[in-house]
Design a protein around this nucleic acid. Structure first.
Length: 275
DNA sequence: CCGTTCCTGGAT
DNA sequence: ATCCAGGAACGG
């Protein structure tokens, strides 16, 4: 579900409401949610730790704790944080429940059970494979045209849609924004990474952070499940140019938007604007 | 490097 | 009843 803009929105509101609070109690309601360690160890480690802050790397949520620990959360398709008033208000699919100081409850809901929660250290080098192998985050200063140009060359046989979705190259882009970025860059999603000329590479480089930042301004995109911590939907839905607009008219040329499968995923594009 | 797979619920 | 879903690890 959530891609970089949604995760960023979640982190900002989480940071506001849980930073400075202490974790008094942790209940793991679905044991397989916790990876690489036991639920008991997770619960024990979290106990009496203070939440220092919440930030994002790619689509991963990093909740840093006192004592040099970080809770890493991958929301995957349906993971969601929310703040129930009391335990009676928790949802059917709540998998994790923190009781914080000042009587705040922080709950984590995940219908499809794909989400992953890890304990990591606060060290600069993570001990998690997912973070170790993550590509450049497009909203950091490490993101440069050279990085993109080199990656396009290295993964020249990969199609550009799968290239954008590959978290080991650039992290944070999911299926919605991949289609949107390619529309704005006017590139056909079926093209290979290696077939892009310099001008097209520059367009990809430019529109990745541009679209993501624009979506953050609108607090992300909601189709069905996605909500931020306070239960709000994202408003970027109304700004989408191609995603989920199959058979509708292109906003630029009025041709019909098509939906094809690339790498098993829906890919929306305008056959006239995107070459 | 591509297809498959984990899991549940909503749409058709 | 069947298909589809915004993610990412895995195996062939």
């Amino acid at each position: 579900m959530p891609e970089l803009p949604e995760v960023e929105t979640i982190c900002r509101s989480l940071d506001k409401c849980v930073s400075g609070k202490t974790i008094l109690n942790t209940e793991v309601l679905y044991q397989p949610l916790i990876k690489k360690t036991t639920p008991d160890d997770f619960t024990h480690t979290c106990k009496n730790k203070t939440i220092i802050g919440v930030k994002r790397i790619g689509k991963a949520i990093c909740i840093s704790l006192s004592g040099n620990y970080t809770i890493i959360v991958q929301l995957k398709m349906t993971g969601k944080f929310y703040l129930p008033e009391n335990k009676q208000e928790t949802t059917k699919h709540t998998r994790l429940l923190f009781t914080l100081s000042e009587e705040i409850l922080l709950a984590f809901d995940d219908i499809r059970k794909f989400a992953c929660v890890y304990l990591d250290t606060n060290k600069k080098i993570s001990n998690l494979h997912y973070l170790q192998t993550l590509g450049v985050d497009p909203l950091t200063s490490d993101y440069t045209l050279e990085v993109i140009t080199k990656a396009l060359k290295r993964f020249s046989k990969k199609n550009i849609k799968s290239f954008l979705l590959d978290q080991h190259i650039v992290c944070g882009i999911g299926n919605i924004y991949a289609s949107e970025i390619l529309f704005h860059a006017k590139i056909d999603p079926k093209r290979t990474a290696g077939s892009l000329n310099q001008k097209e590479a520059k367009a990809i480089f430019k529109y990745i952070p541009k679209i993501l930042k624009e979506a953050i301004k609108h607090k992300g995109t909601t189709f069905s499940d996605y909500r931020d911590v306070d239960g709000n939907k994202g408003n970027y839905l109304h700004k989408l140019s191609v995603y989920q607009r199959e058979n509708q008219k292109c906003i630029d040329c009025l041709s019909e938007i098509e939906n094809i499968k690339i790498g098993g995923r829906s890919s929306f594009f305008c056959p006239k604007c995107q070459k």
